[in-house]
Amino acid sequence: MGTGQAPVKRYDRALRDLIAGGRAEPGFVVSYEPRLYEAASAYEHFDNGRR
């Protein structure tokens, strides 16, 4: 097993097409949707390992 940055550019277009075509629904992995004005605080919490 390894860790590190995901190779986003390798998969982003294929994933976009799956989502747009209704063949993938990634919403189940989203646990929190902050408002735009909460973005800075949300990133701070994420960086600190908090929700």
Rank of each mutant, 00 (worst) to 15 (best):
R50M: 04
R50P: 00
G49F: 13
Y37I: 04
A20K: 13
G49W: 13
L18H: 07
Y43S: 01
D47H: 10
H45W: 08
P7Y: 12
F28R: 08
V8I: 14
D17R: 13
T3E: 01
E25T: 07
R23T: 09
G27P: 01
L36N: 09
A42D: 02
G22L: 02
L18S: 03
A39T: 13
D17H: 14
R10A: 12
G2C: 03
L36V: 09
S31M: 10
G49H: 10
R35A: 11
S41L: 11
P26I: 03
F46P: 00
A20S: 08
R10S: 11
A24C: 04
G21T: 08
A6I: 14
P26K: 05
R51E: 02
L18D: 04
D47L: 13
V30G: 00
K9F: 15
N48G: 04
D47Q: 05
P26E: 02
D12I: 15
K9R: 11
E38C: 03
F28H: 06
Y43C: 02
Y37Q: 06
A6S: 09
Y37P: 00
Y32L: 01
I19W: 12
A39V: 05
A42M: 06
A6T: 15
D17L: 13
K9A: 07
N48D: 06
F46L: 12
Y11G: 00
D17T: 13
S41N: 09
R13Y: 11
R10F: 10
Y43K: 11
P34I: 09
A14G: 04
H45I: 02
A6R: 14
G21E: 05
G27C: 03
E33T: 13
G27S: 05
E38N: 08
Y32E: 02
A14F: 12
E33Q: 08
G4F: 07
R13W: 11
Q5E: 06
T3F: 04
P34V: 10
H45R: 14
M1Q: 03
L15T: 12
A20I: 09
F46E: 00
I19L: 01
G2M: 05
L36R: 15
L15Q: 04
R10D: 11
V30P: 00
T3D: 01
V30T: 08
Y11P: 00
Y43Q: 06
V8M: 02
D47E: 07
V8G: 01
A39L: 12
Q5Y: 11
E38A: 06
S31C: 06
N48Y: 13
G49M: 06
V30K: 04
G4T: 14
V30N: 01
A42S: 05
A40I: 08
F28V: 09
F28L: 02
D12M: 08
R35L: 08
A20L: 11
A40K: 14
E44H: 10
K9H: 11
D12Y: 15
G4C: 08
V8S: 02
A14H: 12
R23P: 00
P34G: 03
E38F: 09
A42L: 03
V8Q: 01
D12T: 14
R13S: 05
V8N: 00
N48T: 12
Q5C: 01
E33S: 04
R13I: 13
R13L: 04
V30I: 15
E38D: 12
R16Q: 09
E38H: 13
A42I: 03
L15I: 15
D12Q: 12
T3Q: 02
A20T: 12
A6N: 07
G2N: 07
D47Y: 14
R35M: 05
P7S: 09
